[in-house]
């Protein structure tokens, strides 16, 4: 985590032109960053096609979709910074192309050339090694043009994960404002506090709609462990009733999929709900999060 604090990962958030509206939920495109945050218990959901196996949905690749709570948790703990892009991106690309298209093309050509040279070198070396293994002393001069042509046609043009074009845009500085928009658009602060509390108890959360909850919580990396709990949306349990049907449904389903059905809620201290700000959250010790679990006893 300390390493991440020194070099926080970049989370992309695309917002509208006036920055008053979040257009896309938080995304990460860099595999190294994805690996780094996984080590501190933020898994997100990969959602892009894996070029290696394009006809299945189990193993996917970048981009990583983050739950809003995950993104905010990373930010508050200093492990991530938001890189906010004002849209519409297509028109910004157009502007960029109008002024610098020649230069951009040159840049990409150079990059491609470099990559081709490296690939050629590598392939030739491989070829020579292979020949040596077979006991044939390869003469580079003979038939070189032929094999070169072969190598030429097998060169790989890669589509990169992360953007070069967007480096040309001036980046907007980030305030807590964007976080408020994210929360307003996709979740609630109470849900975030539940997330935070569970994360601090070393649970790893992932989206829980398929089990009828807000999160499902794993005791460790979901790659290796079963999840233990289905966590419901935060309940203001001092004021809100629990629906009997929901209680039965949640507990029944939870029991059949071997998970505990958990209701969490925040007891608000002296503070009004509305003055939740990032600063307050950082200092926050007043909000008291409690969890209740329901199990189908099957008694009698």
């Amino acid at each position: 985590m300390d390493g991440l604090k020194q070099k926080p990962v970049e989370i992309k958030v695309f917002v509208s032109e006036d920055a008053n509206e979040v257009i896309l939920s938080p995304l990460i495109f860099d595999i190294a960053s994805i690996e780094a945050i996984r080590k501190i218990g933020i898994t997100g959901t990969l959602s892009g096609t894996l070029p290696l196996a394009t006809q299945q949905n189990l193993f996917l690749s970048v981009p990583l979709k983050l739950m809003v709570e995950e993104a905010i948790w990373l930010y508050i703990n200093g492990c991530a910074k938001f890189s906010v892009m004002n849209g519409p991106i297509s028109s910004r690309f157009s502007e960029l192309l109008d002024s610098q298209s020649e230069q951009l093309e040159q840049e990409s050509k150079l990059r491609l050339q470099k990559s081709f040279e490296l690939q050629k070198k590598y392939k030739q070396e491989q070829h020579i090694l292979k020949m040596k293994k077979l006991g044939i002393e390869s003469r580079i001069d003979k038939g070189a043009s032929e094999s070169n042509a072969l190598i030429e046609s097998s060169l790989f043009v890669r589509t990169s994960d992360t953007s070069d074009l967007m480096n040309h845009f001036s980046n907007q500085q980030i305030s807590g404002k964007i976080i408020n928009y994210l929360v307003a658009n996709y979740s609630s602060w109470d849900n975030y506090l539940l997330f935070q509390s569970l994360r601090e108890q070393n649970y790893i959360m992932s989206p829980g709609a398929r089990f009828g909850g807000k999160y499902i919580a794993y005791p460790g990396d979901p790659l290796n462990y079963h999840s233990h709990m289905t966590v419901r949306n935060a309940l203001d349990y001092y004021n809100e009733p629990i629906d009997m049907l929901e209680l039965a449904c949640g507990a029944r389903l939870g029991t059949t999929v071997k998970k505990l059905w958990v209701i969490g809620g925040v007891k608000h201290g002296n503070r009004e709900k509305s003055d939740r700000t990032v600063q307050n959250l950082l200092l926050n010790k007043e909000d008291d999060v409690s969890f209740f679990s329901v199990e189908w006893a099957g008694f009698g």
């Binding site: 992309k12 695309f14 257009i23 896309l24 995304l27 495109f29 892009g48 970048v62 981009p63 892009m85 849209g87 991106i89 297509s90 690309f93 192309l97 298209s101 020649e102 951009l104 093309e105 990409s108 050509k109 589509t159 990169s160 994960d161 992360t162 953007s163 070069d164 074009l165 967007m166």
Partner: peptide, 14 residues
């Protein structure tokens, strides 16, 4: 002109 797009660029265009 061959100005390549990355995966990130394409998602930005949503």
């Amino acid at each position: 002109r061959d100005i390549p797009l990355s995966v990130e660029d394409m998602y930005a265009l949503f």
